[in-house]
Design a protein around this nucleic acid. Structure first.
Lengths: 341, 341
DNA sequence: GGGAGCGGAGAAAGCGCTTTCCACGCTACA
DNA sequence: TGTAGCGTGGAAAGCGCTTTCTCCGCTCCC
């Protein structure tokens, strides 16, 4: 049951292939309306569906954008993807998705695959180490050399990549500054995987604001970017600096590097029989929509995740070199830390 | 900077195009090793990247699978997508993603787009109304007529579609039965969008188990599939059947049609100054990993979401007609409802 | 009335690959 | 020694489009 081809449509409409193509796919030249009507009718009757592969081959542009994320089930990434997908749709592009589980190998393979599919652009949503994998860099370089566009978040890891700058460090600093403002003095940091620049930037922001107040984190624990990671890191913190330890007359404030970890921290604190925020305070990062209703409400730094995805896709799909994109966020003080009671 | 073509590789290796193709892309016939080595070396030196579009055209198979979901930022869908993407990767297929915001129009467009890209299969992860949109059905029919495979979840909405059957109704029934077993008598249902079969099946399951115990829901409120939807629906329920209303000596049990709504319910109950589970009990559905750490822990019906996605992708990519796929779940009693204190 | 100019349709040359079919040189067997 | 048969590489025909270039038939203007 071979699909209907443009040729079939042309024959049925009694016109040439060229004319049919011009009518059905917005070319610069459009044939006379009388003919156009005939062609469209023929296409309709036959149930013609253009073959994007053939078009891609002929046009050398695929209308595809590749998105690589660490973990699509992480709400941070899924929000970004939502925005990106939506922007792509508006530009009638399709999204090719790869979720790599943070394995460099998978990332490299994703980029290779996207290169094979000749995606018009690749968006690398998961942050990488500062001096990234050799293989990845090589693939990306080859990709850009062949005319592909690359977009990254938060840092310029690759020559020639367009970047969506995210206020990770600044956000971290502002969040901590707000907490310090409200009198907090004892902080511990629940960091994500150490090699990810997102972690690095956020932690750097935390430290900068602390330093500005003459403070220093009591502890920095690196864990997984998950609830369980947050939970485990929190255990370590409570052990080292919880109530009963030296200086514990001042409440401890746990700075998680994202909301999901903060949720784990909440659980860990509870399971120690401690109360948030009375005994221990907890702050997150991102302001994940799904987690807006957790109890107690999380103090966090809100990032417009969906917009970030959207902007990334726009950057990816822009044909002329666009200006820099800068994403700001805002401190959101809620009950879990630093808020008025 | 035109990309390196297979022709270039062939020339450099001093062989014909056909031979180069046979070496680099697992054909049935593979040339002598001595030649193969030369070809591979040439490909490597030139940085050859096969053009998947051209291959697709020549092979008439794209290695693409289209995934359409209602909302990728909903953890239910993002978990499914994670599984699907992972299975696709193992079969060296790529995933084309569409998030439709539950607009029928977008869904139809997604299917059209996937048809254009000649995806080998389409997975419809978002459930649709039982008698679905005309336009959607037509597109899908055309798609299958041209040899495309279609996979749906939980119901056979389209002739010729393969289906991943999900224990939605049965799960709802089992969950409620467990709660009834523990002495609960007053139930209200927080339903999702009424036209979605997932909602319908889960609610039907709730009702079946209630009926089996000679009970009936006090109220069924339909809302959005979101925290806010759950919150709003809960307001209505508390108004109609909360403490202080008739029969309210028995605690009220809120059955949410998914975990995200249940989270909203938790928040609403709290904001009324009531306690879960002491004043009101709340149960969810799905057992979303991200929400495992909320407080109080949610009683729910666990569905292996990631596996569901995986199975769907396997079904989509299986070339010969596979057997039926059945997904079971399990009741998880936690503090929010029906658990031992 | 004739030629320049223009608009619009069609022929055909790709786009980069796969795969069939053919030709060729061997080996094996009678 | 002759021939059938097999294993291999190459030529070439698509796969379904887009787009350039050509050609034809008008209109317009002198």
């Amino acid at each position: 049951m071979p699909a209907v081809r443009l040729t079939d449509v042309a024959v049925r409409a009694g016109v040439s292939l060229a004319t049919a193509s011009r009518v059905l796919n917005g070319s610069l030249r459009s044939p006379a309306e009388s003919i156009a009507v005939r062609v469209r009718a023929a296409a309709d009757e036959l149930g013609y569906v253009a073959n994007a592969q053939a078009q891609a081959l002929a046009r050398s542009a695929t209308g595809l954008v590749g998105l690589v994320v660490h973990d699509i089930s992480d709400p941070y990434f899924s929000s970004i993807v939502r925005g990106a997908q939506s922007a792509a749709r508006e530009r009638s592009s399709q999204v090719l998705l790869a979720s790599t589980d943070r394995h460099e190998q998978s990332e490299v393979e994703a980029v290779k695959a996207f290169a094979m599919y000749r995606t018009d652009a690749i968006v690398l949503a998961g942050s990488r180490g500062a001096h990234s994998d050799q293989a990845l860099t090589r693939e990306l370089q080859r990709y850009t050399a062949n005319g592909g566009r690359v977009v990254t978040f938060g840092h310029t890891a690759f020559a020639g990549s367009r970047v969506v700058e995210v206020a990770n460090e600044d956000g971290g600093a502002r969040l901590v500054a707000a907490l310090v403002d409200r009198g907090r003095r004892r902080f511990a940091i629940l960091g994500g995987p150490e090699e990810l620049v997102t972690t690095q930037h956020r932690v750097a922001g935390f430290r900068r604001a602390l330093a500005a107040a003459g403070l220093e984190p009591l502890l920095v624990v690196h864990g997984d970017f998950t609830s369980d990671g947050g939970r485990a890191a929190t255990e370590a913190c409570l052990e080292a600096a919880g109530p009963g330890t030296e200086g514990a007359d001042q409440p401890l404030c746990l700075l998680a590097v994202n909301d999901v970890m903060a949720l784990g921290a909440l659980a860990a604190v509870r399971s120690h029989g401690l109360a948030v925020p009375d005994d221990v305070e907890v702050a997150g990062f991102d302001d994940i929509p799904t987690l807006r209703h957790v109890d107690p409400p999380l103090t966090t730094f809100r990032l417009p995740l969906e917009e970030m995805g959207r902007r990334a896709a726009e950057l990816a799909l822009a044909t002329e070199e666009p200006g820099p994109v800068h994403i700001e966020g805002e401190v959101v003080l809620r009950l879990s830390a630093g808020a008025e009671r």
